[in-house]
Design a protein around this nucleic acid. Structure first.
Length: 862
RNA sequence: GGGCGCGUAGCUCAGCGGUAGAGCACUACGUUGACAUCGUAGUGGUCACAGGUUCGAUCCCUGUCGCGCCCA
């Protein structure tokens, strides 16, 4: 039995709880079955949301799109493995914790800080669980993981150990991107370019043997770190300068003048200085020309006292003056130092023109601080030597939409740095390494034994060593170093010799689908491909589905600062999960979508219509029990005899075909559209009106009525299943309410294998043509009434039908099987099929051009 | 500066070689026994612009302009 009104809140709460209870053969509806083989599985590499973020519409948008795919695959018969995880380690979480608790990691013990991180993370994870449950994600909660859990740490450390053993991981002091605010190294992907106003100064260097040379620089504070001057070989002054030494101002350091094509003769004076390190070009020159390393900025972004200055590698022609400059600058931030150096240069009379320029400054994505390039020992995954192989791996994956692959390839082609995975932070996965202090092997890297993972080198020891013999590696991994093994965290294995459960790994890796957003193609997708390739020379997934962003209604980005953020909770409360899911289902993969209340209202209209149509059908099929089998079998058994009934079943079969094909291609929006059109146009607007005469017993006999009831039964049941991935709550409520006999057998409408089957459907082409004709003529009759501005109830005294331009051969024979239904639905009193319409009266063509009709309306009732 | 995507009815979008589609909005009519959270019908577009290919272009090619994103 169904109530008149759909009680949204109560129904959603009921099924949320029910789906988590063991129901189908003792298992939960969405449970993955670990005993089955890989052949029947469908494995999803779900994005673990970063718990440091706040809940926004984007989460609903992208996670629901994945859920639509998961639900289809499950209903279509796959053993779906749909895990969920939380990315809770790393710098983003540390920053969140410092903010919400008003503390600083640097002010407390490492252990205390980590403890607080765990607390904050718990609260945040519960918010996500509630949201995901509210929108009915069909994830298997038994597969939940955290990237900071011991299991994830073990997987992540196994990964690093495997890369180390295979020679893909190196640790050496080399120039690294450094965030002086958070005091940690960063990877290329965490850099954002910000346009900042600044100045370019001309500065005069002296020349050995007399004279001066003028360079242009935006970073005069680095003059002390200068190792050479560069000039383009075609520069007019190249001839006189090349081969000579310049003398840096303030410090008096002799530096060679070298030729390089990369020194832009159009920029500034056309002569630049190369320092340790102003930018990435400096690093190239430093490598290429074998320049000395001259460090003058420390890890906190302040000027050092340059202890090596004055030595053999760092000579000066005027040590005393240089020491004055060093003393004046020591301890200043880079920014303060810039001002001071300019003053000193001015006082020394070597400062030339100052020009205002806008420049792009590389900054840390998280802290926003301008980056320095500092030489520190860091762990790098070697990727620069593998660009071609990485692009090839990307091409083995099906990208949806395909053009997103280009973004990946462009990123790989433009890589400038190996992947730096070490961070000088606290809340993360530690490296499973120590450095030996044993005499004779000082500095040797000692790796943990795979069986001992996870290890904390600050507490644990490498096999065979005493505490006093080792120095632990103090760093933690970047959060991407762990999230990049999300498929392996779920599959419980990384590589040969690094397996927790080889059987499970073989079943779950590679996964079938990676869903994710496009802005992290260069990070998460890229890093995951790197890991899978280096560990097992595999692509990590078969398909990758890229979702777009959820924009505000005006198509601008939602952001707190703009105040245009719509929270998921307000929408869920107002419209319910089914309507919100409907909104996400209407836009395809890859496209950004504006949040639209209009679309939500359409969803509302659809669910209301579905509820009411089901109430109507329910009234006519209640006593059928589970006597109906399948449309095909019931038709073959002579239970479905009406032409219109065969017509709606044929349209249903075609709709199923489209919906199945589109869903299999991840085109859930096209699938939904096909089902919606069938439900609204064919079923509600036409079939239900045409079938009422027989359903209520006003037309035909018992067999005709039974035929109608069987067709109503099958059509509604199938439509519910087709809508089930998009509207899980309402379809379950109706299904459990009306199809109780079937529900006893199998459980939830969302159960595995519940997608309708093409082989159970039946298409009768003759009946289809007859039904199409009935629908076209009914529409023309309605149009005649609408044009006459009368009620649709107004009877038609006489309806005459003649062949139109594209008429079928025998109109009378075609219409015969539906004549009674048609006349009843149209309120027609007298009916005739003729060769051509009589003169006079307003004839109408049907939309398909098959017929011309003349409807003479009865006088309206008084 | 490079790459990618997008510009179709007032709005949100589909179509992608053969006389322009849907929903919303708007207008008119209508409470018909599932539904007024409704029904039926209608109005509405030189498919951003300019060239080219073709018998024929919204659809393919080239260029221009505008918007968005990614990367320098």
């Amino acid at each position: 039995m169904m109530s008149d009104k759909y009680d949204l809140q109560a129904v959603e709460a009921k099924w949320r709880a029910e789906w988590e209870r063991p129901r189908v053969n003792g298992a939960r509806v969405y449970a993955w079955n670990p005993t089955e083989s890989r052949d029947t599985s469908y494995v999803i590499d779900t994005p673990p949301p970063t718990v440091s973020g706040y809940l926004h519409m984007g989460h609903i948008y992208s996670y629901t799109q994945t859920d639509l795919i998961a639900r289809f695959q499950r209903m279509a018969g796959k053993n779906v493995c749909y895990p969920i995880g939380f990315d809770d380690n790393g710098l983003p979480t540390e920053r969140l914790v410092e903010k919400v608790r008003g503390i600083r990691a640097a002010d407390m013990s490492r252990a205390d800080f980590i403890k607080i991180c765990h607390e904050v993370v718990q609260e945040s994870e519960q918010d996500f669980r509630n949201l995901f449950s509210a929108i009915a994600l069909s994830v298997d909660w038994a597969l939940e993981y955290q990237t900071i859990s011991p299991h994830s740490m073990k997987t992540s450390q196994s990964s690093v150990l495997d890369l180390f053993n295979k020679g893909h991981l190196t640790r050496k002091p080399q120039p690294s991107l450094w965030d002086p605010a958070d005091r940690t190294a960063l990877a290329q992907a965490e850099v954002v370019e910000k346009e900042m106003p600044g100045f370019m100064w001309d500065v005069n260097f002296g020349l050995e043997g007399g004279g001066t040379v003028t360079i242009a620089t935006t970073r005069p504070e680095l003059i002390g770190a200068c190792g050479a001057l560069l000039i383009h070989p075609d520069h007019p002054k190249a001839g006189e300068l090349l081969g000579r030494n310049a003398i840096s101002p303030l410090y008096g350091v002799p530096v060679p003048i070298l030729a390089d094509e990369k020194a832009d003769p159009e920029k500034g004076t056309g002569i630049v200085m190369c320092c340790t390190f102003g930018d990435t070009t400096d690093i190239e020159w430093w490598h290429q020309h074998g320049l000395p390393t001259r460090v003058i900025v420390d890890h906190s972004g302040r000027m050092t006292d340059m202890p090596e200055f004055g030595g053999a590698d760092w000579p000066s022609v005027d040590l005393e003056k240089a020491r004055e400059a060093i003393a004046a600058l020591k301890g200043l931030t880079v920014k303060q130092a810039k001002t001071k150096v300019v003053e000193l240069l001015e006082a020394a009379g070597v400062l030339g023109v100052k020009q205002e320029v806008k420049r792009m400054v590389p900054c840390a994505e998280r802290s926003g601080a301008p980056l320095e390039i500092i030489v520190t020992p860091q762990w790098f995954v070697k990727v620069l030597d593998k660009k071609a192989a990485l692009i090839e791996k990307g091409r083995q994956i099906n990208w949806h939409p395909d053009y997103m692959r280009v973004r990946y390839e462009i990123w790989v082609e433009n890589l400038k740095w190996d992947w730096c995975i070490s961070r000088q932070r606290y809340f993360g996965v530690p490296f499973p390494f120590w450095y030996s202090k044993r005499p004779g092997e000082e500095g040797k890297i000692l790796a943990a034994h795979p069986d001992d993972l996870p290890v904390n080198p600050l507490v644990d020891l490498p096999r065979g060593y005493e505490a006093h013999e080792v120095e632990p590696d103090p760093d933690v991994m970047d959060t991407w170093a762990t999230s990049s093994v999300s498929p392996q965290i779920n599959s419980h294995g990384v590589a040969e010799g690094m397996m927790i459960d080889p059987d499970r790994h073989a079943k779950l890796f590679p996964s079938h689908l990676r869903p994710q957003a496009h802005e992290i193609i260069r990070t998460w997708a890229f890093y995951t491909i790197v890991k899978a390739m280096l560990h097992e020379d595999k692509a990590p997934w078969q398909d990758i589905a890229i979702s777009g962003w959820c924009l505000a209604e005006d198509r601008s980005k939602m952001s707190k600062s703009k105040g245009n953020v719509v929270t998921p909770h307000s929408l869920l409360e107002k419209y319910g999960a089914d309507c919100v899911r409907y909104w996400t289902a209407t836009s395809r993969l890859g496209l950004d979508t504006a949040l639209s209340e209009d679309v939500l209202k359409i969803g509302k209209r659809l669910t209301t219509k579905l509820w009411n149509a089901a109430r109507f059908v329910g009234g006519h099929i209640a006593d059928l029990g589970d006597a109906p089998t399948t449309p095909k079998a019931d038709a073959a058994a002579g239970l479905v005899t009406g032409a219109l009934d065969k017509w709606i079943l044929a349209k249903l079969a075609r709709t199923l075909q489209t919906a199945t094909d589109e869903n299999a291609k991840y085109e859930y929006a096209d699938a939904l559209n096909a089902v919606e059109r069938f439900f609204w146009d064919a079923f509600c607007d036409n079939y239900l009106e045409l079938v009422k005469g027989r359903a209520y017993g006003d037309v035909g006999g018992e067999a005709d009525k039974a035929s109608a009831r069987y067709a109503l039964f099958h059509t509604l049941e199938t439509v519910l299943r087709l809508f089930a991935p998009v509207l899980p709550f309402m379809t379950e409520e109706i299904y459990q309410g009306l199809f109780t006999a079937r529900h006893d057998k199998a459980g939830s409408i969302h159960a595995r294998g519940y997608w309708p089957k093409a082989e159970d459907m039946v298409i009768d082409e003759a009946a289809e043509a007859t039904g199409d004709a009935a629908v076209a003529i009914l529409a023309a009759v309605r149009k005649a009434k609408s044009l006459a501005k009368v009620s649709l109830k107004t009877p038609v005294a006489r309806l005459t039908v003649a062949p139109g331009p594209s008429a079928p051969a025998d109109v009378a024979a075609l219409l015969a099987p539906v004549k009674d239904d048609l006349l009843f639905a149209g309120g027609v009193q007298e009916f005739a099929v003729v060769e051509s319409l009589p003169e006079g009266g307003e004839a109408l063509d049907t939309d398909d051009g098959a017929f011309r009709i003349l409807a003479v309306l009865a006088a309206p009732a008084a």
